[in-house]
Design a binder for these strands. Structure first.
Lengths: 112, 112
DNA sequence: AACTTATGCATAAGAAAATTATGTATTATA
DNA sequence: TATAATACATAATTTTCTTATGCATAAGTT
C-alpha cells in the first residue's frame, strides 16, 4: 500500500472535520476511518494523533468523554462550540491553501 | 496582506515546478514570483528558501550557475535531469495528497 | 548627504508538527 | 499459545518551517 505523505499542518483539520461529520469519535476510530476513506493511502500514526487530540482539547476545541467498552478504555471526542467555529476556519484555510497551490503549480486540474 | 499558511512539505514542490516552467531562476526571483502569483498571500521566507535550494542542489536535483548583475551576486538554479524526473513525482504526490484531503474533508469543491 | 527600501545572498536559534520507537493492557484470531 | 487487533500514551528524534541576524550593493527619498 502506498503510504501517501501527510503534509504537516493538515492533521488538525482532518480531525475537526471528521468530528463535525460523525458527532463523536475515539482516537483509534479516527485512524481507521482515515485509512478506510483514503483506501489505505493515508495512515495517521498514533504518535501524531494522540498529542494532536490532547492539544485540541487543551485549546477547548474538543470535549472528552471516557467510556469503557469490553473492559477496554475509549476516549470519545466531540467538538465544542468553539471547535465548530474553528472547523469552519480550518476548512477555509485548507481550501485557500489548495487554491494557491493550484495557481502555483499550474497543473491540469483545478478546484471548483 | 494575509500571509496564508504554507503547509509544511510543499516548498520543494513549488521550487521544482517554478524551475520547470521558467528554465532558470535565482532565489530572490522565486520569492517574488510566488508572492506575485498568489497576490501576496504566500510569502516564501529566505530562511526557508535558501536551505531548501541548497538541499535540492545537494541531492543533484538542481544545478547552480553564479552570475554578477549590477555588481550584485545572483545564483541561478535550474533542474538537472534527475530534478525533472523528481518534479513529476512531487507533482503526482501533491495531486494525490489533495485528492485524499478532498475525500476526507468532503468539501463543496473538488478537483477535476 | 543621510536614511530607508529594495535587491541578493547566508546561517543560527527556536518552534511546530510530524515519524519512529517504546510502553502498557485487553480481546480476538490463527 | 503466539500473533494480530484494539486502545491508550509518551519520549526521542527528524523534518521543515519561522524569526532573527548578518553582510553587501543599488535605488529612491528626505
Amino acid at each position: 500500500m502506498g503510504n501517501s505523505k501527510l503534509y504537516k499542518g493538515s492533521l488538525h483539520t482532518i480531525i475537526l472535520k471528521l468530528l463535525e461529520e460523525n458527532g463523536k469519535m475515539y482516537g483509534y476510530e479516527i485512524t481507521q476511518k482515515v485509512k478506510e476513506i483514503t483506501n489505505g493511502e493515508l495512515n495517521i500514526t498514533e504518535g501524531a494523533l494522540y498529542p494532536a487530540l490532547h492539544k485540541l482539547e487543551a485549546e477547548d476545541l474538543l470535549d472528552v468523554e471516557v467510556a469503557k467498552v469490553d473492559n477496554r478504555l475509549r476516549k470519545y471526542y466531540k467538538l465544542t462550540e468553539k471547535g465548530s467555529k474553528e472547523t469552519v476556519n480550518k476548512l477555509k484555510e485548507l481550501e485557500n491553501y489548495i487554491r494557491n497551490m493550484q495557481v502555483l503549480v499550474n497543473p491540469n486540474w483545478s478546484i471548483e
